[in-house]
Each structure stands twice: as C-alpha cells, then as structure tokens.
C-alpha cells in the first residue's frame, strides 16, 4: 500500500515536471557518456599495452652505406662487427635480460617495409640496401631497455638502438590525454547535472508544497515525504545512465567492432562486452549523483 502510494506520487511528480525531468535525463546522459568514454579509452589502452608489450622489441640497427650517425663514420657494418654484436647478445651478462632475438637482414627489412607501406608509392623507390640490418631483441622485462641500450649503442657498427615501446608510449599518451579530456568534460557536465537535479527537486518540492504540508500535519514520516522526490531524481538519472550505456555499447559494437577492427585488423580492440564492465558503474554513479544532490536540496527546502 505504502509502496503503491509512493509510486503514484513519483509518477505524478514526474508528469508535473516533465520538461525538467527530460533535461535531467539528457544532462546525465551526456555527462555519463563522457565518463564511460574515458573508461573505455583506458580499457583500450590496457588492452593494447597487453597486446603490444608482448610483441615489442628492442631493435639494434646496424650501419649501412647511407647512415649519417657519428658511430657509422667508418662505413657500413662489417661481418666481424656483426658477429661481435651477436656474440655480445650471447654473453651471460646480456643473455639474462634477453628472451629471444633474431637477425633481420636487409631483404627481410625490405619485405616488412613493403608490407607496412603497401598502399604508399614510397615502396617503389626504396631498395634493400637503403634499409639497415638489425637484431630484433625481445626482453624478458621490457623495462630493462636502458641496459641493452647502454651496452649496444657504443659497439662499433651499431647505428642506433631503438625501443619500440617508446613509439607505443607516444600513442598511449595521446589516448591518455583524450581520456583526460573526456573526464574533464564529464566533470563539468556532472556539475551541471547536479545543479539541474537540485533545481528540479526544488521546483518539484515547491509545486507540491500543499501536499507535503498536509503530509507533515497528519504525521507522515520523513521517508514517505522525501522518498518520492529523491526517487524522482534517481529515476531520471538512471534513465540517463541507461541511455549512456546504450550509446557506448553501440559505439563499441558498430564503430569499434564493426569498422575500426576491420580497418586495422592487426590491432587489438576492446569488444562490446567491455561496456558491461562500465555500465554498472555508470548506473551507480548516476543514482548516487541524483540521490545525494536531492537529499541535500530537500534538507534545505523541505522541512519535516
């Protein structure tokens, strides 16, 4: 009975303030979409880190004819230098850091280059002897790149030691910035949402002051008087959160899964299942936002 009554009150409250309720729904929808987008970006970064960090290597590039680096002043790498480098890789001091390594010859390098730039006209103008030979070293712990760098960059015949992780870090930092921007927008929108919810509840309390006045007089409990208002805000916010989750799911499914994954088949993307991780958080966040802001508002505007 009491439940049915409270539900009825909520229904009439929502109808009475329809335009405000719609605006609460939209604002929470937008703000939570940004929150969720930031979350998905982070998930994507983690996914890519896991995927790429297993594959990244330290590349020890050897000198070629066209090298301009100071260490290559004496011309292209000689066979002795090459075997000296390989021998260094085998010494126990270095081997403890190395999971595996292989040698990439100039022909291999050209092949990879052609794969990578398959659609670019640059492929036709590049020849094998322009590309450096290299040792591709996988580390046991990718963080230990500095050790390898120190040992090999001073060896004769080595042009440069490159940590591929650094290239990835650059990509990740761009993504991190994007997710920070999303969080920043979300924060502003959340402030909007809180203020809007507070205003809505205030209006709602004002338009029903006759009812609440009578409720007070006949001895209705604080919960019965306040609950309809709080739930009104919570329901609107949760609807916004559901919409945000649906949009994120659609993005994951149709944009990331359907388009991006097809365009970049060798990149690991998050699946639409990851939205399941984020959606409960969004729902909870929406409900909390509305609950707290309406509680605070009611304390000021609805004396019991």
């Amino acid at each position: 009975m009491r439940l049915a009554f409270i539900l009825g009150e909520i229904g009439s409250g929502l109808r009475r303030n329809l335009s405000m309720v719609v605006s609460v729904i939209l604002v929470t929808f937008i703000s939570l979409t940004f929150v969720g987008a930031a979350g998905m970006l982070q998930l994507q970064i983690n996914q890519m880190k896991g995927y790429w960090y297993d594959k990244v290597q330290v590349a020890v590039f050897l000198c070629v004819e066209t090298s301009t680096a100071a260490s290559c002043a004496s011309g292209p790498v000689t066979d002795e230098q090459r075997s000296a480098i390989e021998a260094t890789l085998e010494t126990p001091a270095v081997a403890q850091y190395v999971a595996s390594y292989h040698f990439e010859s100039q022909t291999d390098a050209l092949e990879h280059f052609r794969e990578q730039f398959a659609n670019s006209p640059i492929v036709d103008s590049v020849t094998a002897d322009q590309l450096p030979e290299s040792f591709r070293v996988s580390l046991v712990d990718p963080q230990k790149y500095e050790v390898i760098n120190e040992i090999f960059s001073s060896l004769p015949g080595v042009e440069v030691v490159v940590d591929q992780r650094e290239i990835l870090e650059r990509v990740f930092s761009v993504m991190n910035i994007a997710s920070l921007v999303a969080v920043g927008i979300a924060a502003v929108m959340i402030v909007c949402a809180i203020l809007l919810i507070a205003t809505t509840i205030r209006l709602s309390a004002f338009s029903r002051r006759r009812e609440t006045g009578i409720m007070r007089l006949v001895g209705a409990s604080k919960a019965v008087i306040q609950l309809p208002f709080i739930l009104e805000g919570v329901i609107a916010a949760v609807i916004g959160a559901v919409l945000a989750s649906l949009v994120l799911w659609a993005v994951a499914r149709f944009f990331i899964g359907g388009w991006l994954a097809q365009q970049y088949p060798d990149t690991a993307f998050i699946s639409d299942g990851s939205v399941l991780l984020i959606a409960p958080g969004l729902l909870l966040l929406g409900a909390l936002l509305a609950g707290i802001s309406s509680l605070l508002t009611l304390r000021r505007y609805l004396k019991v």
């Binding site: 009578i214 007070r216 007089l217 006949v218 001895g219 209705a220």
Partner: peptide, 18 residues
C-alpha cells in the same frame, strides 16, 4: 515528531484541501 502529529488533528481557516 510525525508520531506526535498523528495524535493531533489540525484544521485551518483556509481549509488547505488538495
């Protein structure tokens, strides 16, 4: 306080009906 008020009925000059 609600319990106190349940034991008291109140009528006003302006009726205060819904």
């Amino acid at each position: 306080v609600p319990k106190l008020r349940r034991g008291i009925g109140v009528v006003f000059q302006d009726f205060r009906l819904l």
